[in-house]
């Protein structure tokens, strides 16, 4: 109850300040099991991308959030787990960091991940970490959907206190899949280029 109220307030504020419109360019908002992977520029990324999904998809889609940021106190933990439906991962742990992600995919539900691992401030995404490759290899039935989040580095960059009211857009691209004999590096670079390729769609 409280979680859904907080969710509506966060969504309303987000829409007023930074817009957050979805553009389904390469695929539609379909009910398939998916791994959305996007460039990472700000803490708003998770909220914007998740808010762009229709409510029916949202219920079965879990953003992946860093435990060291979102799990640091009871409030951020509440926002991440109850409001945003997120799964928390340890960025620097000894056990398999992908374990909570596998749990979600095993249940047939979808994920939102940021394969750069950390927030960048450049327009184009940096190199991707290998987690995306492991998931693509182990869950071939899940569609891999590249997403480009435009303007977020300007609206709410690293270190900023308040978001600037700049319209942000999520461009959803054509799903891709791991090829038969594709090696890890080639796949990750292809995935990165798929996200970068969507950046040009921002200005019509």
């Amino acid at each position: 109850m409280i979680a859904s109220l907080v969710r509506e307030i966060i969504f309303a504020l987000t829409r007023f300040l930074v817009g957050g419109n979805a553009r389904w360019i390469g695929c539609g908002p379909d009910q398939e099991q998916r791994i959305y992977f996007a460039n990472h520029a700000s803490h708003l990324d998770t909220i914007i991308l998740w808010a762009c999904l229709p409510p029916t998809l949202r219920r079965k889609t879990h953003p992946v959030a860093a435990a060291d940021y979102w799990g640091r106190n009871a409030f951020t933990r509440f926002i991440a787990l109850d409001v945003l439906n997120a799964v928390l991962v340890e960025r620097a742990g000894s056990r398999d960091p992908l374990a909570p992600l596998r749990d979600v995919l095993d249940k047939g539900e979808s994920l939102i991940i940021f394969p750069e691992g950390t927030r960048g401030k450049e327009v184009l995404p940096g190199t991707f970490k290998s987690g995306l490759h492991h998931l693509a290899r182990d869950y071939p039935q899940a569609q891999l959907v590249p997403v480009y989040l435009a303007n977020l580095a300007r609206a709410y960059p690293k270190g900023a206190v308040v978001p600037a009211p700049i319209n942000c857009v999520a461009n959803f691209g054509t799903p891709l899949a791991l090829a038969e004999d594709e090696d890890k590096g080639a796949f990750l670079e292809r995935a990165r280029k798929a996200v970068a390729g969507l950046s040009g769609e921002m200005q019509a």
Partner: peptide, 25 residues
């Protein structure tokens, strides 16, 4: 507010513009 948001949203810029934009708004 809405006009300024439109103007800056379609202008290219960098993350480093954030402080100036926050002051403007």
């Amino acid at each position: 507010f809405y006009c300024l948001r439109e103007f800056l949203s379609i202008s290219p810029g960098r993350a480093e513009d954030h402080a100036a934009i926050v002051w403007a708004f």
